[in-house]
Structure formats: C-alpha cells, structure tokens
Amino acid sequence: MQILIPIIIVVVIGVLAGLLLAFASKFMSVKSDEKTEKIRECLPGANCGACGYSGCDGYAAAIASGEATPDKCAPGGSTTAAALSEILGIEIKNEKHIAFIACGGNSENTTTKFNYDGMKSCAAAAMSLGGPLDCEFGCLGFGDCVKACPFGAISLKDGRPQVDEDTCMACGLCVSTCPKGIIKLIPQNKAVRVNCSNCKRGAEVVKACKVSCIACKMCENNCPTGAIKVENNVAVVDPKLCNGCGNCKTVCKRGCII
C-alpha cells in the first residue's frame, strides 16, 4: 500500500499534464499557412541554422513568403531542394554538375618552351614565365586540383588530371585552385564539351598544341540550335540550347570538341 500513493501522484500529474497539452494543441493551435506546413515537413528538422534562419520553422516561413530560395538547406541537399521545388511549383536547377578540365593537351600534343625543374606544383610552375608549355592556357599537370579536391574525385593519369564524374560534387574548390583557370563547372549530361581554353588567335595556337581550338567557327556554322559559339577565340557551348546532336564534334578538324 505504501507504494500506491506515490504512483497515483505521478500518474495523476502525468495525466493532467497530458490532457493540458492535448487540449492546448487542440484549442490553441495556430492555423498556420498550409504551404508553410508542407514546406516544413520536407525540411530535415535538424534546426542547424545553415540556411541563415532561426531554424527549420523560420526557413519554411521564409520560403513560403518568397523571401528565401529553396536551395539553402545544406543537410537536406538536392533531395530536399527537389521536394521543395515541387511544392512551390518552380523548377530549380539541381542538375548534377561536374568539374571539367578544358584542356586536351599532353606531352604528345603540346610543345614546351623550356624544361621546368622547379617545385612540383601548378601554382609555382605558372609563376615562372607562365609555365613550361607553349600554350599559355594549357593544363600544367602537377595536380594542384588533385590536392584541392576534398572528395578525391580527381586523379593524375599520364600527367593529366582526370575527374571521376560520379564522385565529383561540383564544390568548385579545384576551379579556384587552378592557376590557369581552365576548370569549369558544367552540367554532367551534356554530350558536347569544348576541350580547350586557349583564347589566342588561331595561328599562334596551332603551333602550341595539336588539339587546340583555332576559332575556325566550323562548329558555330554547323550547329542547328545555335548553342555553340566562338567567343574570345575559343568555342563556348551554351548548355541551355545544346541538344547534344554532335554535329560540332564531327566537323571539328582539331578534335577539341568531345
């Protein structure tokens, strides 16, 4: 019998507290915006604050009011962004991007102006007369991007960095590391990539590298959608217009479109 009274006390207090909360949530519930509610359900609920708002609730309200874009949730990633865009009825570009090193040069294709025997680093090599290559826009191949990649998606193969497209998260660290500025973030599923960055005039470029873009405009003239254009002496693909027909690939005499 001794134990009965404390049990009753705790149970009664528990039931009372439960009832209080049940009634409170029933009668005092705030009719929140249905859209906000739906958005909130899609968010992970970690309240981490990576989006810059007070928590998932704050962020949901901000999205619903149009104040914030739905792509700020870091823990949710692209799946959350996709779910949110469905609710909002807008399309967000979460197409997978990858890093692409726009240079086809290697020891066979590209000539050198001197033998570089300094520090094994692209940044150091680029500082001595712009590097040993005749092409000023060529990949130096010391792998600064390999070291910069936090995901291990870039590896050196025959003195050329290769991007593993499945591992690449398009964080852009290699883009800012490359002293030549020839790494770009591009949509993965586009069939056509221009594998050269040299913006010098054709005559100079021909001497420097066998697989260089000489701005002959063959691709531009043969593109049915007008997606590929020569800008600043190098061909540039507009991924929005490109339909991946591959005409430019076949007409390119330099083989620099892949």
Partner: peptide, 11 residues
C-alpha cells in the same frame, strides 16, 4: 509539460 504549454500559448 509547462514549457510545451507556454510555447503553444505564446504562439
């Protein structure tokens, strides 16, 4: 229980 209740009440 009280803190939860206050939260609902304030909201």
């Amino acid at each position: 229980a009280i803190v939860q209740f206050i939260e609902i009440f304030l909201k």
